[in-house]
Design a binder for these strands. Structure first.
Length: 270
DNA sequence: CATCGGACCTGTTAGC
DNA sequence: TGCTAACAGGTCCGAT
């Protein structure tokens, strides 16, 4: 489900309900997420106010004076703020109970997500190796060109590598490469500086626009307020195998790169 | 180092 | 209608 726009949509949805609220309790029903939920999360959160909710890459960080709870949504995770009497659904793995009688509820059928704790001055190892945010000024064509030097793997993998730039997953990689006119199979080290410039701009534009539209809802992503995202209607190639390219009419091609489906126009992308 | 495949899970859908 | 296989928005880890 969640790439950067969906995580940012989630952040914007929950932060107004969490900021300033004191955490009363963490109720973990199913600790077997990607990693077991450590006791340190409850110890860190209880009886202190949440100061703010940040996003770094696809991680959400609930900050308080002691440190940060780290939440990743994996493939199928979602967060909602609910009244305490809302009935449980399947795969509701934990609740964060707040001092106003509401709670933050985490649901994740596949359990690829996580809930971890980062003590105040430290940076968790998961966050330490991340590349720049796509909206950082340092993320541009020159940066991509330099990092791609000597890399033989497909540029799509390069773009989805969170150590290169964060936030781009399978959907938005396909969309950004289409917009930049680059074949996803092309070796990263064989992409020109000019085309990397177009790619960096495409990533910024597409992610920014998807955030404005509330993310992409393919089957089950819902914003914390229960509304779907509306970016799906604007997808150019993702999930459109065999349908006409919106630019040239050529049927959209699909290939398997690594273990992931990739969609592209063989005429518009070289 | 970079690259590749497998692993972790459940739910939905395509195909027979 | 029912069974099975393939596939799904992520990313870590170990082998090469």
């Amino acid at each position: 489900m969640p790439e950067l726009p969906e995580v940012e949509t989630t952040r914007r949805g929950i932060e107004p309900h969490l900021a300033g609220r004191i955490v009363r309790r963490l109720l973990v029903r199913e600790p077997r997420l990607r990693w077991p939920v450590p006791d340190a999360v409850a110890d860190g959160l209880i009886d202190l106010p949440v100061e703010r909710v940040r996003r770094r890459a696809k991680y959400l960080l609930l900050d308080n004076p002691r440190g940060s709870a780290i939440v990743h949504l994996g493939m199928s995770g979602s967060l909602r703020v609910l009244d305490v009497d809302v009935p449980l659904k399947a795969h509701d793995h934990w609740d964060l109970l707040l001092d106003d009688g509401r709670l933050l509820r985490y649901n994740d059928p596949r359990r690829f997500g996580c809930l971890l704790w980062q003590p105040a001055p430290e940076v968790h190892p998961l966050l330490a190796q991340l590349g720049p945010e796509p909206f950082d000024s340092g993320f541009d064509g020159g940066y991509l060109y330099a990092r791609a030097h000597g890399r033989s793997g497909p540029v799509k993998h390069f773009l989805m590598d969170q150590a290169i730039v964060v936030g781009v997953g399978n959907i938005y990689a396909a969309e950004a490469l289409f917009r930049a006119g680059i074949d996803p199979r092309r070796a990263a080290g064989r992409v020109s500086r000019a085309r990397f410039e177009a790619l960096a701009q495409a990533v910024k534009a597409i992610l920014g626009h998807a955030i404005e539209r509330g993310g992409t809802t393919l089957r089950d992503f819902l914003r914390p307020d229960g509304e779907p995202g509306y970016f799906e209607q604007e997808l150019q190639v993702y999930g459109r195998a065999g349908e006409p390219c919106r630019v040239c009419g050529t049927p959209v091609a699909s290939v398997r790169l690594g273990q992931r489906s990739s969609f592209y126009c063989r005429k518009c992308q070289r």
